[in-house]
Design a protein around this nucleic acid. Sequence first.
DNA 1: GTCCTGGTTATGC
DNA 2: TTCAGACGTATTCGG
DNA 3: CCGAATACGTCTGAAGCATAACCAGGAC
Length: 799
Amino acid sequence: MSPIKRNINDALMANARARAASSKKPQPSQPSPSKKLKPLENPQIPSSPNPKSNPLVSEPLESKPKASITDVLMKGSKKPSPSPSKKEKKDETPKLKSKGNVDECVGQLKRKESDFDLKAAAWWGEGERVPFRFLARAFDLIDKESGRIVITSILCNVFRTVIATTPEDLISIVYLAANKIAPSHEGIELGIGDASLIKAMSDSYCRQEKSIKNQLKALGDLGLVAKASRSQQMLRKPDELTVVKVLDTFRAIAKESGKDSQDKKRNHIKGLLIAAIDCEPQYLVRLLQVTTTLHFKKIKRVRHLDTQTHMSNTIFKTKLRIGLAEQTLLAALGQAAVYSEKHSTAPSHIQSPLEEAAKIIKEVYSVLPNYEKIITALLNDGVWKLPETCGFTLGVPVGPMLAKPTKGVSEILDKFQGTEFTCEYKYDGERAQIHYMEDGSVEIYSRNAERNTGKFPDVVMSVERFKKPNVKSFVLDCEVVGYDPEKQKILPFQILSTRARKGVIMSDITVKVCIFAFDILYLNGQSLLQEQLIDRREHLYNSFNEVDAEFKFATAIRSNDLEEIQRFLDTAVNSSCEGLIIKTLKKDATYEPSKRSLNWLKLKKDYMDSIGDSLDLVPIAAFHGRGKRAGVFGAFLLACYDENKEEYQSICKIGTGFSDIMLEERSASLRPKVIPKPKPYYQFADTIDPDVWFEPSEVWEVKAADLSISPVHRAAAGIVDQNKGISLRFPRLLRIREDKSPEQATSSDQVADSWDLDVSWKQPRMIKYQWKKPPARHYKINTDGSLANLGGFDAVTRI
DNA sequence: GTCCTGGTTATGC
DNA sequence: TTCAGACGTATTCGG
DNA sequence: CCGAATACGTCTGAAGCATAACCAGGAC
């Protein structure tokens, strides 16, 4: 069992015990018995006498090795009100096998694929759809496992069961297991975050939002909160929810937009939550948790007229967090296909069909990321034909090839010993994959396969200018970079990011861009994925013309000389690039979609030891961790020191670069430094709402890729700009500076100096673009100048 | 109804 | 984006 | 030569800053 799962589970058990212990405490207005988390609600984690021990895992758990988490939880929450014991019996309806059989069926899934009894795993009858509980139970099984082989095997059995009994539901269950509702380039979003989920849960479970939030802090996972909230009084029919219904509801949620859409979305969610039984709520919530919002605060204050408001929240795509993500799912799907193969047997030259099938599915998916198409083809023609039936399709984004970080030129020479390679500038912009169809239409996709065409009408227009006339179709891999055509200069990423994103029209473009092309994947009806880079590049150079301030080829050299590469890196950085990308030319030089293979390496200054920006900063506050960080601090607020004003100014949060041990050590050593309120000499935005504040006591060395002008952080505020401070791009912990005291931390003046030094080339631009007063509101107008229906996308302009 | 602001969510790196 | 940890496979080492 | 130790690749899930887009609700 991995530590991550252990922590979560232990947290639950600890809660159950805490609940039992404090059950005498009356709950004033809240009917649910399951939130007496007082010991954990205290933001000051250090309630335990021994600062080293984590209160969430401090109790030994040998007492209940057998009992499932669910059991523990139910026992805990039942104590106060043992009334609803009817539930076990009422769970059954004549149609369904008994509860015991459900357990038995699910137990089957853990068997080796080889002696797995297909039908025995399914408890739903002929003609019935796959219950969502089947998937939720499988998730629960998987959650308890840590090995990928076992997890793959369980999921494989799930798919086999569905294929054998209810093949029409395979697509739905795969989508749910993948935590998706549609291919990403279709741009369908749930529009649901933690905040909306908490509201829906509050309604469904009759709990105060506040109490849910507190429990979330303690448990570090909204899914676990849902699990703990399940009220025993609610009578639910089992298996009312099918995978199809769940997926359909998700899609319905995504469809809602416009007036009252939030209400409608919430009602959909409530419908699901209320119908959910067993371990369904936990996974429903996790599936809906497409995004995670951290730490927001609701305090009003007067703002400077020219200061925009910003929330200090960070959002991440979440995963199921049970150790199952896309790669494992694809492997499982491939294996299941082999077992269920009716159409053909594996070609004889294949020794290990299971591995081979997994590989095929992964490859096919990277080239055609569409489960509908793949599964349909899979069921119709089988795995072995998949490469033919589901190949690369013009207009569908290919997973872009990624690069591996490297620490220095010597490491590169080491890895690419004896092979020919090339070094290219790594531009600081947005990855773009441009598809040009035979009919002259253009589509642009982002790194994450989002359809970005509407964001870059200027790029769409310039295609006809930069492609040679004989080119009929292509797929280009390139970087879109902010560009000043007058000065012929690259603009920093922060400026590029101010571009509008949807429904942009030419006349309204504020930030011009230039394309830097570095690869071509498809040309005149032919896929070039299998070609070596040296040949693809030839095609690239032959098929396009550089157009001033619109289209250029990425600067590249061919060299095996350490010194020369080192110098090239320097020129790249001086030319406003992040660093270099290094690629082999002839050997292993095919385009490997979305695979982080050895073939491409990236080299940035800040990856290298003893070079790049590093600052010594003071942790002044912290946030409770989530998921595998539950029980320790997950992130800290750092500050630099202003000697003149004698104050600490926030500069960034930090949550990466810690080993598990270090994180625990830091949490332990800072707990005694917790203070009830921030010091008066702490400068920070009121949108930052940490869980605990600290006495200034430690100094940490932190590395960053870049400095940025910040709307939230206060470092060097007033020096570089009147109202804005400075923050760090990609901050990560290097080490603890035991030798320094907080007053010896990096000073605000030093931060300001680094800004001048580091971005002298971009500073004038920054002022021109960044601080131009942005009229906050946009209105949609039709091309004839009249106001458009607010729901439309025809045109956007500025008043 | 329009305008504005604050709160939330979705993306990029 | 960065980073660390766990798992699995490939390779090397030592008896 | 084989099992143990080590090295390396893959996969997962913690976490950062900054922006635009969108929605709800209050002021007018």
